[in-house]
Design a protein around this nucleic acid. Structure first.
Lengths: 100, 100
DNA sequence: TTTACATTTGACAATTATTGTCAAGTTAAT
DNA sequence: ATTAACTTGACAATAATTGTCAAATGTAAA
């Protein structure tokens, strides 16, 4: 499966846009967008939705990919990561969030 | 399923330990431990393993619960959270982490 | 080949989030 | 009423994230 960065870079290039075009719209330096595309930095959630707009990418799929990477980042090099994921899934399916 | 905080509080009380006893061993103020137990603050990973030692709790289960709460925190009030979880799970099962 | 432009890199600054202290406020049992 | 345990909230310290900038590197056309 393609990473968020790969999805963004591929679509940007397909549209013939330069880093400076897109980063200007995001109001950040080209350096950051470069890093985001190469997976060296994470985007913010806001940047992801803006990118979906700018590049005409499906917002939901992009967000799902982005969020899944955030999750994986949390459990990187945790032996118990998979088990934690399963518990999280059960919890969310069961009763959503616990309210006082 | 019990939250990390509930597990900790219940076991601490079962052992007859006061907040100040345990928080001293963790080298933090009682206020923080109080908040951790009530779910108002997240513990650090290190605090979790220390708490497992101090309270003689199973380290793995406590960590799994703790990590799953961190994951759920990341996707709280995200409509696409469940889907992101599933993608994360597939990814982790597939090839672990991507190496250049 | 050098000029021109796009991208990358890395040091560092700004900003934001997390983790902590402290002191005053509750609660509950005498 | 006193005392001890716990809670609360304002704020300080620390750490992580997000950003800028300038120099370095790649790339291709003239």
């Amino acid at each position: 499966m393609k990473t968020t960065g790969e999805i963004i870079r591929e679509k940007r290039e397909k549209k013939g846009l330069l880093l400076r075009h897109v980063s200007a719209q995001l109001d950040i330096d080209t350096a950051i967008l470069s890093k985001i595309e190469r997976g060296e930095r994470k985007a913010t959630r806001e940047q992801i939705t803006k990118l979906a707009d700018i590049l005409e990418l499906d917002k939901e799929s992009l967000l799902i990919q982005y969020l899944s990477e955030k999750i994986l980042y949390e459990i990187q090099d945790e032996d118990l990561g998979i088990q934690a994921l399963k518990v999280a899934e059960k919890t969310i399916k069961y009763g959503v969030t616990k309210n006082k």
